[in-house]
Design a protein around this nucleic acid. Structure first.
Lengths: 176, 176
DNA sequence: TTGACTTAGCTATTTTTGATAAGTAATTTG
DNA sequence: CAAATTACTTATCAAAAATAGCTAAGTCAA
């Protein structure tokens, strides 16, 4: 009475994504995406540390720098950009305000909303950080040429859009 | 005395990755990678819920299914695969053991190490899950043809390898 | 214009994820 | 054999982020 090895079923069946009928390369891709996530997080943690910020504070700072235009960015928009819940964005913004890196002001055209902008000090921090960021990013993406870059951007968006459609149809099914 | 808008410095300077001298598309790429991470996490949370598992439990289950061969996978190898600390892998494995989805046995050739395998019940769960997983993955990656798939895998690895080299040189610099 | 509803954000609390510290047992090496 | 290393575990702790419930402000229809 021998016990046979578990034959793990494939996790995808589209023939385009199978190699010799196996999902091995597909699993490796999922694993590599996971790996990349951790590289991103480690890198952000390193940079955050040099600025004496927590990773979520750093993320918020970058988000505000990216999204503030002339007027600033609302807490809700920042939260959506960072993919976090509203109150968490509030909290991080308050921490950055305590550090004088970010200012809050009321939106004159809607007094419910608060607009976030970098202070002079916050801008200065960003400017001082920029050269290090450039050096780091130049190295990290040194293997990517122009064609790779545009291909990768396109593929990312293609996957994301496939995913979003799936989420929608998946949710629809649970209502059946 | 007018205050001018903050001119955010670019975060990368390699000309191959700039479009009209701006890092806009590069920032979008970083954002899209982030977005994808959250799609992965949301999807895993959804699947986990249908199995009445927490996301880390589900990750561990998938990892064990992937890595157990004839003998099983050690706790340490699982931890490295999942990019988590050893004790956390221990904990998740124990939770799965309590649920009778995973069995532990001593490694006959090294009694310090514990080998994890799916139980019959764990295998059965995987087999029942597989068709749903296939359907989901087929949909998510529906936009990817064979060439896209292989390109994407290659680009992922290319970026990861650039990243790893950078981490190494970065760490080396802090010792200067 | 007032009452019902919605939206934005905040405070307080809780959950979840994951790491660290410290220890035991087994193994390898000088 | 003693010292160092490895694999894992238990117990503890910290960080990240979500939820619940609240207030203030805005919108809109009767």
């Amino acid at each position: 009475m021998t016990k046979f090895e578990f034959e793990r079923p494939n996790t995808i069946t589209r023939p385009e994504l199978l190699v010799d009928g196996s999902d091995f390369k597909f699993r490796q891709m999922i694993y590599d995406m996971d790996h990349l996530v951790h590289l991103i997080q480690d890198t952000r943690r390193n940079i955050s540390q040099t600025l004496d910020l927590s990773p979520p504070e750093f993320n918020a700072l970058m988000g505000i720098a990216q999204l503030q235009g002339q007027q600033g960015v609302s807490v809700g928009d920042l939260a959506r950009h960072l993919h976090v819940a509203g109150p968490f964005a509030t909290q991080q913004a308050n921490l950055l305000k305590k550090r004088n890196l970010v200012a809050k002001k009321h939106n004159p055209s809607d007094r419910r909303s608060t607009l976030l902008t970098l202070t002079e000090e916050g801008e200065e921090m960003f400017r001082k950080l920029a050269p290090k960021l450039q050096k780091l990013n130049n190295r990290i993406f040194a293997n990517l040429d122009e064609a790779d870059f545009h291909r990768f951007c396109g593929l990312l968006q293609s996957i994301a859009s496939g995913w979003t459609q799936t989420q929608l149809s998946y949710e629809a099914e649970t209502l059946e």
